[in-house]
Computed example of a mutant assay.
Amino acid sequence: MTDLEYEIAAQDKKFAATIDRLRKRNFGNNLPFLILSDQLPEGQGFYEFADGRIEIQEVYTIGAEIETKFIRRLTDREANVVREKFMKENGLL
């Protein structure tokens, strides 16, 4: 392994650890974790909750306020696919 490959691998591990900590912190504070995806229209994201459910919500602004609009809740199967894809892409699996 070259020095560059080693550095990239180390950075990937740090990134994965940071994402994992942020996700757990949000869940611990009863907050959802935002999963952005190019599979959704612009302005929408997947919101994962500590109980395992995932919702699609739209984020928009009204003046200086940030608001969200519930679109729909994913089925358990859909939620598992989104979660597993996110975790795999971010080195959490």
Rank of each mutant, 00 (worst) to 15 (best):
R23A: 02
E48Q: 03
D3V: 06
M1P: 01
S37L: 12
E42F: 13
L34G: 03
A9W: 02
N90E: 09
A79K: 03
N29A: 12
A9P: 00
R23L: 05
G28M: 09
Q57F: 10
P41M: 05
F70V: 07
E65I: 07
K85F: 15
Q11F: 06
K85I: 08
R25T: 13
T75D: 06
K13L: 01
I56D: 03
L31C: 08
G45K: 06
Q39A: 15
V59F: 09
E67N: 14
L93M: 14
E67I: 08
E7G: 01
I35S: 01
L34T: 10
F46C: 00
P32N: 09
G28L: 10
I19Y: 02
M1D: 07
K85C: 05
I54T: 00
G52P: 01
N90T: 02
A64N: 15
T61P: 00
Y47R: 00
L40R: 03
A10V: 04
A79P: 00
A64M: 13
E48V: 00
A10S: 05
I62Y: 06
E67W: 07
M87N: 08
K69C: 05
F15M: 12
R23T: 03
T75L: 13
E55M: 08
I56Q: 04
R83E: 01
E84M: 14
T18D: 13
T61F: 05
R23P: 02
F15C: 09
Q57K: 10
D51W: 08
R83W: 05
N90C: 06
L31Y: 14
L36E: 14
D76Q: 15
T18C: 15
F27V: 03
G43K: 06
L36R: 15
E55V: 08
L36Y: 12
T2A: 08
L93F: 15
E84L: 12
F86S: 00
I8C: 00
T68Y: 00
E89W: 13
L34I: 11
E78D: 13
L31N: 10
N90S: 06
D38Q: 14
Q57G: 05
I56P: 01
F33Q: 03
D76P: 04
N30D: 11
Q44C: 12
N90I: 05
E5C: 03
L31G: 04
E48I: 01
M1I: 03
L92E: 02
N29R: 12
L93E: 14
D76C: 11
E67Q: 11
N26I: 07
N29K: 12
F15W: 13
F33T: 02
Q39V: 15
T18N: 14
V81H: 10
T18V: 13
P32T: 07
K24H: 10
I8K: 05
K14M: 11
I19Q: 01
I71L: 06
L93C: 15
G63Y: 04
T2Q: 05
E89L: 14
R21A: 06
I66E: 08
L74F: 11
L4G: 04
T75K: 10
E65D: 15
L36C: 13
I8G: 01
S37C: 10
E55R: 05
L4R: 07
K88C: 13
T18I: 14
V81M: 14
F33Y: 10
E84A: 13
L40N: 08
E67V: 09
K88F: 15
T61K: 11
F27Q: 03
E78L: 04
T75E: 11
I8R: 06
L34C: 14
N26E: 12
K24Y: 09
D76E: 15
G28H: 09
